[in-house]
Design a protein around this nucleic acid. Structure first.
Lengths: 146, 146
DNA sequence: TGTATACTCTACTAACATAGTAGAGATTAT
DNA sequence: ATAATCTCTACTATGTTAGTAGAGTATACA
């Protein structure tokens, strides 16, 4: 697994929208500025996220994007898998792989599979509500430090 | 982290050499055929592994490659890191990353860091001696099944 | 009904990484 | 000598990533 910029941007965007859950939709431009993501790139990402059902949109003057589900119902794992693909560190874990044709290879595959599982255990447990709480907490701590 | 073909080939090669540890060096050609790796690509990989001190070579007629240390003293993690780079799923875990400049981002970084640690815990513990044993065991089982 | 604002969609592109290929050169056993 | 084997540098095809560009569609509001 590798988190690309696209994946990173998607996660940050969803976290931002999670912070506005229940309020008015947020315009791409606002997200783009606040999160420092190239606007046109973010457009594409949001369209992807919309097609996947993570966010919904509203066009026109007071339009923008909002989360399609409660933050507690979206996990980090779902989003990462959708944007950046399978979690396994090598293709053979998830699908057919030309390189693996004898027993020896399985010794490694077994380990890559373990690795995949241990990653999943972490990211499939964390929801955006969790992340939101941590963010707030972090900000509070940050304020105390000032 | 993503295991590339190069990484996969390197691991399989070292495991093969581990199986020949203490015996005569193995020629690139033999490795190439046995492991089904393009010869010229394998050459490059072996040169890299040699520079890193994992293997040593001997030129000339009875030349070839052999493991430079005992199989028990080489971990999967060392080789993976050397060939395919840092373990973390995103650059920000390992070095400076332009995308991370406010507190919010740290929520994710914290998780990617956890992910990196849990991967390390697995691959830094497994040595090529372990893998060798598992291979032998697997082959034995395989034979019984026939 | 016009217009500004915002999302929608498709196509294109520069830069980089991956997975090789090619070929000339150096060393060693016999 | 010469055959076998490692050594080194350069080149290349393909795919992925991280965008950019621009025309089109929907909606609020005056």
């Amino acid at each position: 697994m590798k988190i690309t910029y696209k994946g990173d941007y998607a996660l940050k965007t969803i976290l931002d929208l999670a912070g506005h859950f229940g309020s008015a939709p947020v315009a791409i431009n606002d997200l783009s500025k606040r999160l420092d993501i190239p606007t046109k790139f973010l457009e594409q990402i949001l369209l992807d996220l919309k097609r996947a059902g993570f966010v919904e949109s509203r066009r026109g003057k007071i339009g923008g994007y909002s989360l399609a589900k409660e933050p507690a119902k979206i996990t980090l794992g779902e989003v990462v898998r959708f944007i950046d693909g399978p979690i396994g560190p090598i293709a053979c874990v998830d699908k057919q792989y030309s390189g693996c044709h004898d027993v020896e290879s399985c010794v490694f595959r077994n380990i890559w599979s373990q690795v995949g599982n241990s990653i999943s255990k972490i990211i499939d447990q964390v929801t955006f509500e969790d992340l939101l709480k941590r963010t707030n907490k972090a900000n509070k701590t940050f304020n105390y430090q000032i």
